[in-house]
């Protein structure tokens, strides 16, 4: 049937097109340009990305594995781990809900103030994390707007866990929304309209059509959001008060150890964060791969 024609024409994988580009003498670049660019890129990569990573792990293990593990199972380190996980466990699900609803509203509906909302979502990216922390001190701190009311009712937000969670939520807010908005905008409203005409309720449309279409993008956003939630330093540092064993997250714990010239322990804890980054990277690559696989027609069969 002639109907197959257009499916075949659009099915050329982009990778093979790139290869053709280099193979053809008409479009090939002079070798020295290629090698210079490659050298610069790889050199930069090695110097600024690989070397620090390598340094973290060498420094962490300088005094041997026993010191390394001792630094990790020490009570203050454990409590910092616990707090970091707790903050992420609260911030990520909340931002998942906020992010999805914000992205849905922006991508699928027309309303006044839409541009303003988009700018607002980006605010945590454009504002320094220290300022973000200070905002919460200003609102909830002892001298802040609600300070006296909070102390009257014996509620502690600043220099306590709620403050750390709030600061983490603020800083990581844009990750999921930012990931979803362009994706949802590109997909348009057609499929949702089709679902509605077929009799689906708004809720059914969301669960059966909207969400499955963005699931890989959503997961990607969650991974990035989680990485940042666990690694955040600036905003959390301002609101935490650095109380050992109580309000220290992993990044803050690293700083304290380092300031005490306890390098081996500092790097040991830092290596945990580095490990987290590597895991994040691996997950991110996997999700990206699945996402491209889900979008390209020819790999549909393997993907399911």
């Amino acid at each position: 049937m002639a109907e197959f024609a257009n499916g075949v024409a659009s099915g050329i994988p982009s990778a093979s097109r790139h290869r053709d580009y280099q193979a053809s003498p008409a479009t090939r670049e002079v070798p020295w340009v290629r090698y210079t660019l490659l050298t610069i890129a790889l050199g930069f990569f090695a110097l600024f990305l690989l070397m620090p990573l390598f340094a973290v792990f060498t420094e962490a293990l300088r005094k041997g594995w026993s010191v390394y593990f001792a630094a990790l199972v020490e009570p203050d380190a454990l409590s910092a781990m616990h707090l970091t996980l707790l903050a992420a466990a609260i911030a990520v699900p909340l931002n998942l809900v906020f992010g999805v609803s914000a992205a849905w509203a922006i991508a699928k509906f027309e309303f006044r103030g839409k541009q303003f909302l988009i700018t607002l979502i980006d605010l945590p990216f454009s504002v320094s994390p220290v300022v973000a922390g200070l905002i919460y001190v200003l609102i909830f701190g002892a001298q802040g707007w609600f300070g006296s009311w909070l102390s009257d009712h014996d509620i502690r937000i600043i220099f306590a866990v709620p403050g750390i969670v709030l600061a983490t939520i603020f800083v990581t807010f844009p990750f999921i929304a930012r990931e979803l908005i362009p994706l949802m905008e590109a997909q348009g409203r057609d499929e949702e309209e089709a679902a509605t005409v077929l009799g689906a309720s708004g809720w059914q449309t969301f669960w059966r059509v909207t969400l499955p279409n963005v699931k890989w993008g959503l997961l990607y956003g969650v991974i990035l959001c989680n990485a940042r939630a666990m690694g955040e330093f600036g905003a959390v540092s301002v609101v935490s008060g650095h109380i050992r064993g109580l309000t220290n997250t992993l990044p803050l714990h690293v700083e304290i150890l380092y300031n005490e010239y306890n390098f081996a322990a500092a790097f040991a804890v830092a290596s945990l964060l580095a490990l987290l980054a590597l895991i994040t990277l691996a997950l991110k690559t996997y999700v990206e791969w699945r996402q491209t696989a889900a979008l390209s027609p020819e790999s549909r069969e393997q993907a399911t």
């Binding site: 089709a194 059966r208 059509v209 279409n213």
Partner: peptide, 12 residues
């Protein structure tokens, strides 16, 4: 029953 110009089939 509505048939959309670009079909709007559920791609997943």
């Amino acid at each position: 029953g509505f048939v959309f110009q670009h079909y709007a089939l559920f791609r997943h």
